[in-house]
């Protein structure tokens, strides 16, 4: 039985690494359809990654070890984060290693080093991207923590597995604090994964790009790792949202059948969330960078309101 939990853990990592590009492909496909364009297919992200991996790496003359180390670290933290979020089952050996605060901090490490890599070469674009990314993160990260804290207050634990357990155990009744937290979480997830209206993953226009500006100098396998990690990050935010707000379907034990069922549930939820994401992205325009304060400020406020309403009402 113990062995089987390790297998599910491994399975979960494989699913993360393997399916994340497909989810990105799904979102792109939906976007093409909604805008009346022909799609490149669900598997285009895989083809992009393979192409990048087979290309050589061009490195600026003065790039240091920080620049070369960052892609591996970013990839590594994304994989590690995938080990602690219950995607298929809550019975994960790695889940007790780290709780949700550590999870947020893992994303922060990746961002910290990406921002440093952006400044490493010494071009204006890199610094601009780093500065903007860290500004947005410094507003988004506390809001994210507050949203997650609100959920964890209700479940009296910061361990994600425990949070899923508690939500299962009943109390599925509508709670105002959770509603606030959910809205805040959606806003932050858009900001953290660099989607419209905060950042546009498809643009390289200097006035608007944020995340892309930092990684502008990357090429070859380094770029592939960063792109892959970016797809994994989007996937992770979706499964984190599922685990914290709508965990129904996740297996409570490590048995084979519930895990399989959980996998099907997860695919269904991913499909639906992809549609929601595309509706947001096609419905909104990208904001000016200094409008971001209002956007993230309201996310922060909503999350804090959620926590306040927990303390006062519940």
């Amino acid at each position: 039985m113990k062995l089987f939990t390790f297998i599910t853990q491994l399975l979960q990592l494989i699913i993360l690494v393997g399916i994340a590009p497909a989810f990105t492909g799904w979102v792109r496909m939906l976007k093409c359809w909604s805008q009346g364009r022909t799609t490149a297919g669900l598997f285009q992200p895989y083809r992009d990654l393979i192409k990048l991996f087979s290309k050589e790496v061009l490195l600026a003359d003065n790039a240091t070890w920080i620049f070369r180390f960052t892609p591996y670290l970013v990839f590594g933290t994304a994989v590690l984060a995938g080990g602690i979020i219950p995607m298929l089952t809550v019975d994960l050996p790695a889940a007790s290693t780290a709780d949700v605060i550590v999870l947020v901090a893992l994303f922060a490490i990746a961002r910290f080093f990406t921002a440093l890599a952006g400044m490493d070469i010494g071009t204006a674009f890199g610094g601009m991207g780093s500065s903007r990314e860290m500004t947005i993160a410094s507003l988004a990260e506390p809001a994210m923590l507050m949203a997650i804290f609100t959920v964890s207050l209700a479940s009296k634990s910061t361990s994600l597995s425990q949070m899923v357990h508690v939500i299962y155990a009943g109390q599925s009744a509508f709670r105002p604090s959770i509603a606030f937290a959910l809205i805040a979480f959606i806003l932050i997830a858009l900001a953290e994964t660099g989607r419209i209206p905060v950042d546009n993953p498809a643009t390289h226009l200097e006035l608007t790009m944020i995340h892309e500006a930092m990684i502008l100098e990357y090429s070859g396998r380094h770029l592939a790792l960063i792109e892959w990690a970016g797809m994994m990050k989007l996937f992770l935010f979706v499964v984190l949202g599922i685990a914290a707000f709508a965990p129904w379907g996740i297996a409570l034990s490590g048995e084979l059948f519930p895990v399989l069922l959980a996998f099907l549930f997860m695919l269904m939820k991913l499909g639906v969330i992809g549609i929601g994401l595309v509706l947001i992205e096609t419905g909104l325009a990208k904001m000016r960078i200094f409008r971001m304060t209002e956007f993230l400020g309201s996310a922060f406020l909503l999350a804090t309101l959620g926590m306040l309403s927990f303390f006062i009402l519940e």
């Binding site: 590594g76 590690l80 080990g83 790695a94 007790s96 290693t97 780290a98 709780d99 605060i101 550590v102 893992l106 009296k156 634990s157 910061t158 361990s159 425990q162």
Partner: peptide, 12 residues
């Protein structure tokens, strides 16, 4: 309630 293992995160 909560658990954190710094050493596992580091080696992970």
């Amino acid at each position: 309630r909560a658990s954190y293992s710094g050493i596992s995160v580091f080696f992970g």
